[in-house]
Amino acid sequence: MATTGQERIIQPRVSDIRKILDKQSNGASSLLAVLEDIQHQYRFLPRDALIMVSERIPVPLSRVYSVATFYNAFSLKPRGRHCFQVCTGTACHVRGATLVINRLETLLGIETGETSDDLEYTLETVNCLGACALGPIVVTEQGYDGMMTISKVDKLMRRVHSLGSENADAGKPAQVDAAATDTAPPA
């Protein structure tokens, strides 16, 4: 896969990666923890960071790559500043998580698993959060929002959008239909 434009934007700083590596001293067995920290810092795993990790731990780069592509929590592609995670656990599923996903896809103009071109929004699904009585659930940087309906998705979208964006114009979500709000789901 060729380097995409998105990946070029974010270059990991050697000192940052070194700091993360220095925190973990368990050699190969700290690989997951190191990758979790890098993912947390950059919202994805930059290629150069993985190469540094491979050299410093040290483990073969192929093993770093296989771990990075195995676990759901890791992404090799940059993710948006605002991430919407929709729980797809059983309870959320039977209570209409698919509708919530559809609405977010419409509002964000991206498919599930994608990130908007301006790196503002990412939409993804997440395995059961264990908060089943509150389904369907959407997680954002502001925490859990439970018992989501279409109108609540619209409200959440406005709230997240009002947090501001790095490049305000490009990051605007599709227009939300005000008339659709405050309606209850069918019983």
Partner: peptide, 18 residues
């Protein structure tokens, strides 16, 4: 790091081993 299979004993140990 998000893998249901790690609930299986031997997969869980592989994961702890990195």
């Amino acid at each position: 790091a998000g893998a249901f299979v790690c609930g299986e004993e031997t997969a869980l140990m592989a994961s702890i081993e990195g």
